[in-house]
Amino acid sequence: MNIAYWIVAGLLALFYFYAGAMKAVRSGDQLRPMMAWVDRVPMPVVRTLGAVEMLGATGLILPPLTGIAASLAPAAATGFLLLQICAVAVHLTGDDRRITLNLGLMATAAATIWLASGL
């Protein structure tokens, strides 16, 4: 189960670190083609969300890797699950109805929570 955690959590962390870095450094014009919702959210909120995603990705990897505060890994995965629940709500309240990626990320975060409980 340890190998499965590292595969699933590693992919999830890679996705969120990349997405968070894009939100943290790119302009609204650069983000708009990929994320239609950035026009409805103030840019400081987008930047904060990017920073939170990068910290959460770090929380999936570093605690189990170092053995220090390993309970932070399921907490980070739970945070990503809650983030995607909110993301689905944002998508459904706007014109963007594409939530397939969000549902996949929810399933991956739920699997990571389950796998992290066995660490």
Rank of each mutant, 00 (worst) to 15 (best):
P44N: 03
V38T: 11
A4Y: 15
Q84M: 15
L31Q: 08
V45Y: 00
P44H: 01
M35I: 01
T58H: 09
M35V: 01
R32T: 00
I68Y: 14
T78G: 10
A57Q: 10
V46T: 14
P63N: 05
L105C: 11
A89R: 10
P64V: 14
I99W: 02
I61L: 15
M43E: 08
A76R: 08
T100R: 10
M35Y: 00
L81H: 07
W37V: 12
G56L: 14
A77K: 14
D39Y: 00
Y16V: 02
G94F: 00
L31P: 04
P42L: 00
H91D: 09
L81E: 06
P44L: 01
T93E: 07
N2T: 14
R26G: 01
D39N: 13
V90G: 02
T108A: 15
P44E: 01
H91R: 12
T58F: 14
S117D: 06
E53Y: 03
R47T: 01
V25E: 00
V88D: 08
M43S: 04
L103S: 04
L14G: 15
D96K: 10
I99E: 02
L92V: 09
N102D: 12
L101H: 06
V38R: 08
D29A: 15
I85M: 11
Q84R: 05
R47N: 01
L92T: 12
A75G: 06
S117H: 11
L49W: 06
A116L: 10
L49Y: 03
G79A: 09
Y18V: 13
I113N: 13
G56F: 03
M34T: 06
N102I: 07
D39P: 00
T78V: 10
A57D: 09
P74Y: 02
I99N: 02
I7Q: 03
L83V: 09
A110Q: 07
D39G: 02
M35A: 01
M54A: 12
A111T: 10
M43Q: 04
Q84V: 06
A109D: 11
W114D: 10
R98W: 15
D96Q: 07
I61P: 08
E53M: 11
P74G: 05
L60W: 06
L60H: 15
G50P: 05
L12D: 13
A116F: 04
G28D: 03
T66I: 07
A19H: 07
G104W: 14
R26L: 12
L119R: 11
A24W: 03
P44G: 01
A109E: 12
S117P: 02
L72T: 11
V46Q: 02
A13N: 11
D29I: 09
A13E: 08
L65P: 03
M1P: 08
L11P: 03
L31S: 04
W114E: 08
V88E: 06
A24S: 14
I7G: 04
E53D: 07
P33T: 07
Y18A: 04
I68R: 14
I113W: 10
V88S: 07
A109G: 06
P63S: 13
G118P: 02
A19G: 09
M43I: 09
T66L: 14
L101M: 15
L65D: 12
V25Q: 01
N102T: 09
